[in-house]
Simulated scan of single mutants.
Amino acid sequence: MTPHIDLPLLHRLLGLPERETPRALLRAARAAARTLPHLVLSLAERDGLPLGTGSTDELRRARVRAETYRRFLGLVQAEAGVRVMKGPQLAQRYPADLLRPAGDLDLVAADEARLWLAARAVLAVRQVEDIDLTVFQHSGHRDVVIALAWPSEDPLLDRGYKIEISTMAFPGDGGAVPIRAALPADPWLADLLALAEERHQRDFHAKDVLDVLVLAGDAPPGETVAAAAAGLYLAPELAELLDYAAGFASLGPLAPTLERLRAPAAAELARRARWHPAEAGAADSVADRLATGRPVYGMPLRQVSGREDWPVAELREVAGSTVLATPVADLLLVTGELVDPEQFTSVLRALGEST
C-alpha cells in the first residue's frame, strides 16, 4: 500500500498553515532537513506547479544523486555482498513520481574483509576527495566505519556525495546502548529500525515521518516488530518515532506496534538507568581508547595500491604513533580533531622512507 503524500501533508509536517505558498513550504523544508526540498520540488512538479530554471536544475541534480547512489549500490553488492540501510531500498517504496531525498549512501558489511572489498570497488571507479575512518574495539572484536566522499556537481549549493560502509549496523549511543553489528534479515525491519537508531544522533523530523508512512502499509504483526526492536535495544526510540508520526497521519497496519512497544520501551529505559560506564584509563591515548571501547579516528596519510590480497587492516606503530594500514589507505589513528602537525609530518615521512 503506497501512502498518499501531498502538499497538505507536507504543510502539516512542517508546521505551516495550508494557505502558505509553495515557496514558503520550500523554505520550511530547507530549514527542516538539507535534502527534504528535493521531495517538495518533485511533489510540486507532480502537481503541475510551475518550476523555474533554478528549481528544475536542483531537482535534476537530486535525481542524478539518487541514480548515482543506485549505481554504486549495485556495484558494491556485486563485488562485496554488502547490504544497504534505507536509501535506495526505502526510496522504492515511495510513489514513482516522488523523489525520496538522498543525502548519503549507508552500507553494512558482514565483516571487515567485505568492507574493504566494497571500499576498493568504489575507489576503482571514483576518485574521492576525503576518506574518514572510525575504529571501535570491543569484546575482542574490531568494528570499522569508512566514509568515502567527493564533491557534488554544484558544491556551493549541494552537499557532497558520501558513501559510508560499516561493519556495524547500529552504533548505539556510546554508553548504555551498545554496538549491534548485524542488520535484521528482513529488509523492512532493517529500514524501520535504522530510522529509530537515528534518534541517537538527532531529533526526528518530517522526512522520518514520510519514511514511516511508506513502510506502514506492509507492516508485519506488531509483536514481531516490537520483539525485534526490544532485541536491538531500540524499543524507546521506535516508540518515540511512531508516536511522532502518528501525530501527522494514520499509521495503518503499523498502529498496533505502538501499543506493543510500551512495555519493552519502559523495560529498556529502566535497564539504561541501571547502567554504569566502565572506568576509563588514566590516559586518553589511542591504545587506551581502544582498550576501553571508545572510538578512535583515522586521518588519511596516503592511499595505497598493491594490497589486493589483504583481507583486513593492520595496526602498526610508526614514528611513535599508531597507524592503521588498510587495503586501500594508511591512516593515522587519533583521539580528536586536533593533531600536532609535526606528528603527522613525521609519520608521513617515516612511511615514505619505509616504502
Rank of each mutant, 00 (worst) to 15 (best):
V304D: 07
L25Q: 13
M85P: 00
R70T: 11
Q303K: 07
F248M: 09
R65Q: 10
D288W: 03
R159G: 13
A110T: 05
G54I: 03
P264K: 03
L14Q: 11
G160K: 03
D330A: 09
D173W: 08
H11W: 10
R114G: 04
T224F: 00
L39F: 13
R93K: 12
A24Q: 14
G74F: 13
T345L: 15
V286C: 01
E58I: 04
A325E: 11
R260Y: 00
L290G: 07
Q137E: 14
A280R: 14
D309Q: 12
S305F: 06
E237M: 06
L324K: 04
P151T: 09
M85D: 05
D340K: 01
A185H: 12
R120E: 13
P37W: 08
S346F: 08
A121N: 04
R12P: 08
I165M: 09
V108L: 11
A44G: 09
L254Q: 03
V144P: 05
T335R: 01
R23Q: 14
P311E: 08
V125L: 10
R199A: 12
L232H: 11
D132Y: 07
A196R: 12
S354H: 06
K86N: 11
W150S: 05
P155Q: 08
L41C: 13
E268V: 00
P221C: 02
E198P: 00
P256M: 02
L36G: 14
I165K: 10
S321T: 06
L242G: 01
D6S: 12
D211K: 07
A28L: 05
V225I: 15
S321Y: 02
V286M: 01
L251A: 10
R46D: 10
A287P: 02
V212E: 08
S321A: 15
V334M: 06
R114H: 08
L213V: 10
P253Q: 06
A31T: 03
R114F: 00
D191Q: 05
D330E: 15
P178M: 08
D104N: 13
G81K: 02
A273Y: 04
R316M: 09
D309C: 01
L156W: 07
Q92A: 15
T134Q: 15
V128E: 07
D104H: 10
D47V: 03
K162F: 07
V144Q: 09
L51H: 02
S346R: 15
A176C: 12
E79N: 03
A118M: 10
L36C: 14
H205P: 10
P256R: 02
H205V: 10
P220M: 00
P277E: 11
L254C: 01
L133S: 02
S305E: 13
G81C: 06
T326W: 08
V125Y: 02
L189N: 03
A249F: 12
G336I: 11
